[in-house]
Amino acid sequence: MLKFTFRGVRGSIASPGPNTVKYGGNTTCIEVRAGDELIILDAGTGIFPLSQTLSPEFPLTCHIFISHTHWDHIQGLPFFIPMFVSGNRVKIYGGQDLVTGKGVQEVLSRQLEYAFFPIREAELSAELEYISLSDNQVVNIGDAQVTSVLMNHPAINYGYKVTCGDRSLFFTGDHEWPPNIYQPDDDDYQLFEDHIAQKRKSIIDAVAGVDVLIIDTAYTDDEYPAKKGWGHGSFSSSIAMARDAGVKHCFFTHHEPTRSDRDLEKAFQAAMDKHPGQPGDPKFYLAQETFTFEL
């Protein structure tokens, strides 16, 4: 059994209010149930509403996979209630920061510094464990496997593939296909294109054939040119990836915080009109807070 629930679908910053009631204002968090296991993808503010539902399962063991350490993907972590209750086990997985050489344990301990939070890491009652991941690493959790895939973003960002039995999903975290830093008439343009093509192939290979793709689709095609290099995808780039990887269902997420429910639906419709359905196409959806999908 593999199912998931969106707990936060917003990018950059939480955006509650009357204009975002339908799709939700919390930042990235996905609750995944794989057999008996609880796997949480990212710890944006959406992890707080999730954590409020978990007390019936105490004492619990859960596995939190952090795509990367930008705020919108970790902000809810200090408010993850199970960490405050003894008997619970919380395992936190994430990449290593190449620049500082620090592992994922840095994230929580820095969030819990005196100036930022009133409770110290040492005071958390649950049993905490940190696991630093490398590219293409497989973690076995009960009947499920989680595989890390290095994507492209202004920070080290891992996408995660969750497989359970014959079902699978892939969550990109934040991702933009790397733009070419050279101009077409530069000597090194083609060489760089080749590197990009190789990277694209390795990612598409990892995603190929999953049932569900949950993908960073922050921008409309009109917005993208001005945001090139910021590390996020567009409707067109997401549709292309879903098609290339041959997925069955594709959920667009990381909605722009300024985008109202109405505008979001308009943007979605415009993208669907621009890319009319082809045979074998995935089904496309807007990720929506509290929406559950069973694979």
Binding site: L98, V99, L150, N152, H153, P154, A155, I156, N157, P178, I181, D188, L191, F192, H195, I196, Q198, K199, G229, G231
Partner: peptide
């Protein structure tokens, strides 16, 4: 150049 594509421009810059 390959590093830039592999780990991202911003990481190489930093």
């Amino acid at each position: 150049k390959h590093s830039v594509v592999f780990v991202g421009l911003n990481t190489i810059k930093n």
